[in-house]
């Protein structure tokens, strides 16, 4: 607690002694066991491990969707653990973009409206929203599909809409939970390429997966077993040099 906050300029994330336990029947599951983590802005990190190892819980915690039982989680220079739910909601909006395995698009809204949603929730005026939407839609190659509902889009297109929604607020942190899990190889490669492109532009990218092919593309790889980080290795590969999977 006495640690200097001046370091946090380059340090996007600092996690200290985080525990998270769940009660399943009469059994306590230790989903996060003494997690310590420092992440610098612009890193590309993959989190791998068998199912039940706590990687999704870690991602939820990092994404402020879940609160640790113990420990500190500093995001953008502030400890988020003591925050109220309302404060956390604002923080999520401004600092974090999510990409989920099952896209989580609102079915009754068009692709454009889905991408617009975070800006609507943030109270950004319509003119400004349109101005921000156009380049993102163009970049995602969704110009012709922007008016379609999710059910009229392919899986790859849906995930691209979800990525558009995640980056529209220009959040510095992008959390992706099995972003290619529901996609065929080709559209999966497409999505990975897009995510890495965003990372190359300075966004911090954390990808949770149990696919080795995807996990090994990251420069820094975390491996989790039973709620603990068992290995944290940094490799010298530059992702963009390898062809997308």
């Amino acid at each position: 607690m006495t640690e200097a906050t001046t370091e946090t300029n380059t340090e996007a994330i600092r996690v200290r002694g985080v525990h998270r336990r769940f009660q399943l029947g009469d059994q306590t599951v230790h989903a996060l066991n003494d997690i310590n983590l420092d992440i610098t802005q612009g890193e590309y990190i993959s989190v791998m491990g068998p199912s039940g190892s706590g990687k999704s819980t870690l991602l939820n915690m990092l994404g402020l969707l879940d609160v640790p039982d113990e420990g500190q989680y500093w995001l953008a220079g502030k400890d988020t653990v003591p925050m109220s739910e309302e404060e956390r909601a604002g923080y999520r909006r401004d600092h974090i973009g999510f990409v989920f395995q099952s896209y989580h698009l609102v079915p009754r809204l068009s692709a454009r409206e889905n991408m617009e949603l975070p800006m609507v929730l943030a109270g950004i005026p319509p003119a400004e929203r349109r101005k921000r939407l156009e380049p993102v839609i163009n970049r995602l190659g969704l110009t012709e599909r922007a008016g379609h509902k999710p059910e009229q889009l392919s899986g790859g297109q849906r995930q691209r809409v979800a990525i558009g929604r995640a980056i529209i607020m220009q959040a510095p942190l992008l959390l992706a939970d099995e972003p290619t899990g529901n996609l065929d190889t080709h559209s999966g490669a497409d999505v990975v390429e897009l995510l890495e492109e965003l990372n190359a532009q300075g966004i911090t990218l954390i990808v949770v997966t149990h696919g080795m092919a995807l996990g090994q593309r990251a420069k820094r790889r975390l491996r989790m077993v039973d709620g603990a980080i068992v290995s944290d290795d940094t490799f010298a590969i530059i992702p963009s040099e390898e062809p997308a999977l």
Partner: peptide, 15 residues
């Protein structure tokens, strides 16, 4: 799911 999503995207409980 939609409620969860709205909250993940930054809607507060009040909203």
């Amino acid at each position: 799911a939609e409620i969860g999503l709205l909250k993940a995207l930054g809607a507060s409980s009040k909203e």
